[in-house]
């Protein structure tokens, strides 16, 4: 129930309205737009927080768990009994955040998705060509690898990124990744850094993280794999890099290629020490 304070006469109310009006008008157009942007961001953050109570990523973690444990492929072995994603065969707790890392058996630095694909081909006997044919989700289709990555990533929830940059092989890939972000080519002369190389920039309303800073790189790797509200599909970091190159007007990076691993190494190392919140929701 509302009660007017005794002193609030009609004249008093008008005066207050007048003051509010003057205040509103004194906010410049630019400040107002910044408020609008901040409000849109805040609303999405709230929406994300609400959604994470029933995080759709968890469905894919469950699906991934089945795939991880099942004996599959021409060699009829499970990944659980054959695949080392960084901490030893079958060990998942905290594995996602210590990737990309160097794997001596493959003689490559690999991110988790690349490593899982490697395990599927080398240990289970699947054909790479079949896996790479349709590597990303669309419509109702979710690749098995995406569910597997989500499952593995779920075991590093709330752990700190710790990609092993002291390993010279990782350092080398990191430096190459850094140079890839600076490489301008294509019809529009874009590099990654054209959009992601300085602070406080936007494309339309979309904020652009500066990947050369820890906070910016964190935004690049945080939340993936992620359930994307646009399209309602589960997508991985590999997909995200692929879509960056699309917007850069480049041709398509081959699936789980060195280029993508190098970019993921660059960003994850920059984000080292920051907490990975786990598979989440993306706009």
């Amino acid at each position: 129930m509302e009660r007017s304070p005794p002193q609030q006469t009609l004249a008093g109310r008008l005066a207050i309205l007048g003051t509010l009006g003057a205040l509103a008008f004194s906010v410049s157009a630019v400040a107002q737009q910044e408020l609008d942007h901040a409000k849109a961001d805040a609303e999405f953050a709230k929406f994300r927080a609400e959604m994470e109570d029933s995080n759709p990523a968890e469905l894919f973690e469950l699906k991934g768990e089945e795939l991880w444990k099942a004996k599959r492929g021409p060699k009829n072995v499970s990944l659980a009994e054959s695949c080392d994603v960084g901490l030893g065969v079958g060990k998942l707790e905290g594995a996602y955040v210590i990737n990309p890392r160097y794997y001596p058996d493959a003689d490559k630095v690999m991110d988790v998705e690349r490593r899982i694909v490697w395990c599927m081909t080398e240990k289970q006997g699947f054909k790479f060509g079949d896996i790479a044919k349709k590597p990303f989700a669309s419509g109702n289709y979710t690749p098995e690898v995406t569910s597997l990555v989500t499952f593995v990533a779920g075991h590093s929830r709330n752990m700190k990124f710790a990609a092993p940059i002291k390993d010279p092989k990782v350092r080398e890939v990191y430096e190459i990744g850094k140079e890839i972000t600076a490489y301008r080519a294509g019809p529009y002369d874009f590099s990654c850094n054209t959009c992601h190389g300085s602070d406080g920039k936007r494309i339309r309303m979309q904020n652009l993280p500066n990947l050369s800073t820890p906070e910016g790189s964190l935004k690049g790797v945080m939340g993936w794999p992620g359930y994307r509200m646009t399209g309602g599909v589960m997508l991985t970091s590999q997909w995200r890099m692929n879509d960056c190159f699309r917007q850069q007007r480049f041709p398509e990076p081959k699936y789980v290629s060195d280029t993508v691993t190098a970019l993921l190494t660059y960003m994850t190392v920059n984000a080292n020490g920051y907490t990975y919140k786990g598979p989440g929701i993306k706009r």
């Binding site: 080398e172 430096e175 190459i176 990744g177 850094k178 140079e179 890839i180 600076a182 490489y183 190159f245 480049f250 041709p251 398509e252 990076p253 081959k254 290629s257 060195d258 280029t259 993508v260 190098a262």
Partner: peptide, 16 residues
């Protein structure tokens, strides 16, 4: 590293 980056890029893409 730039040279290596460019070599890597040249290897890793496909037309689409």
């Amino acid at each position: 590293h730039r040279t290596k980056a460019i070599e890597t890029i040249k290897r890793d893409f496909q037309p689409r």
